[in-house]
Computed example of a mutant assay.
Amino acid sequence: MKLRFPRGAITRPGTPDQDLAVDEAAEGTAPPVIEFRGVGLTYPGPPPVEALHPFDLAVGRGEFITVVGPSGSGKSTFLNVAGLLDSPTYGRYLLDGIDTAALPDRERTALRGRRIGFVFQSFHLLSHRSALENVTLAMLYTEVPRAQRLVRARAALEQVGLGHRAHAVPGRLSGGERQRVAIARALVGRPSLLLCDEPTGNLDSANAASVLALLDELHGSGMTVLLITHDPQVAARGRRTVTIRDGRLSE
């Protein structure tokens, strides 16, 4: 089973190799942001559990893909593989054309930090730090010069509409505002891919609508978004939807 999705707009570059990717995209030669080739994952036993059956999947630049499935279907395993948190048992995973299986652990970690921005259901913000500090700390172990970190963090908060709340701590922010801070933190590294795991799961309907509208705007500006959800209404925001059932993917 092979899933192929059309390529969309080009994400903004954040590193020299991303600049090259954008140049290639302009010439129509850029690789997909995500390309799974026969990827599968089996947890060792006894007995072994085939959490993801082998599949092929390509996600082009600027796509908005949603992934749905019931509890226990394999969504979390898929997220961990896509986010370079787990290595597949077999197959090849190429991120921006880079074969991740060929990388040692340190380089995989560095690639994840450069290319993937994570947004989770639980916001994972430091309660005693301001919104600006939470976003700035995301660059602590990156190559971004210290003098540029605050500038980038302020720009990321402005991008998600929270420039005026930069000095508020999470306890003084609404749920929707906290998730926007989390999205700003994910964007500050200028990733190729925004990987969202149930980003509206802890929000009421009004705040959820606000966050989804922001993701729509980011997609419209060229960001590649992969969103995992169990909510059919949230899934409908994607331009393509992939379903996982019993570890098997289908469009």
Rank of each mutant, 00 (worst) to 15 (best):
236 A>N: 08
163 G>A: 14
239 R>C: 07
190 R>C: 05
186 A>K: 08
189 G>H: 03
154 R>F: 06
146 R>D: 13
206 A>Q: 12
208 A>N: 07
212 L>Y: 10
204 D>L: 12
150 L>S: 08
165 R>G: 11
235 A>R: 04
224 T>N: 00
229 T>A: 13
222 G>D: 11
194 L>Q: 00
156 A>I: 11
212 L>W: 08
147 A>F: 01
242 V>K: 03
223 M>V: 03
161 G>M: 02
151 V>E: 13
211 V>C: 06
145 P>C: 10
197 D>P: 15
188 V>G: 02
218 L>N: 02
240 R>F: 14
174 S>R: 08
205 S>C: 05
237 R>Y: 09
149 R>T: 12
183 I>A: 01
229 T>N: 05
183 I>H: 01
163 G>M: 13
210 S>D: 12
159 Q>F: 07
148 Q>H: 14
231 D>E: 08
224 T>W: 00
150 L>G: 11
163 G>I: 15
180 R>S: 14
146 R>E: 12
146 R>T: 13
195 L>R: 01
175 G>F: 02
230 H>I: 07
183 I>V: 10
144 V>R: 00
189 G>P: 04
156 A>K: 10
166 A>M: 08
198 E>P: 06
193 L>Q: 00
144 V>D: 02
213 A>M: 12
184 A>E: 13
195 L>Q: 01
188 V>R: 02
178 R>C: 14
164 H>S: 13
240 R>M: 09
243 T>P: 02
165 R>T: 10
180 R>A: 11
214 L>V: 15
208 A>L: 03
166 A>V: 10
238 G>L: 11
235 A>L: 10
194 L>I: 03
156 A>M: 14
207 N>R: 07
195 L>E: 00
148 Q>L: 15
185 R>Y: 05
240 R>L: 07
149 R>E: 06
189 G>Q: 03
152 R>L: 15
202 N>R: 09
186 A>W: 14
242 V>I: 15
158 E>D: 15
144 V>Q: 01
187 L>A: 12
152 R>Q: 14
229 T>P: 10
148 Q>V: 06
151 V>N: 03
190 R>T: 01
205 S>Y: 05
198 E>F: 02
238 G>R: 04
224 T>V: 04
175 G>N: 01
192 S>P: 01
161 G>R: 04
176 G>Q: 08
162 L>E: 05
231 D>W: 08
148 Q>K: 10
147 A>Y: 03
196 C>L: 04
170 P>G: 04
181 V>W: 05
192 S>H: 00
183 I>M: 01
194 L>Y: 00
148 Q>Y: 08
148 Q>P: 14
243 T>A: 09
179 Q>N: 04
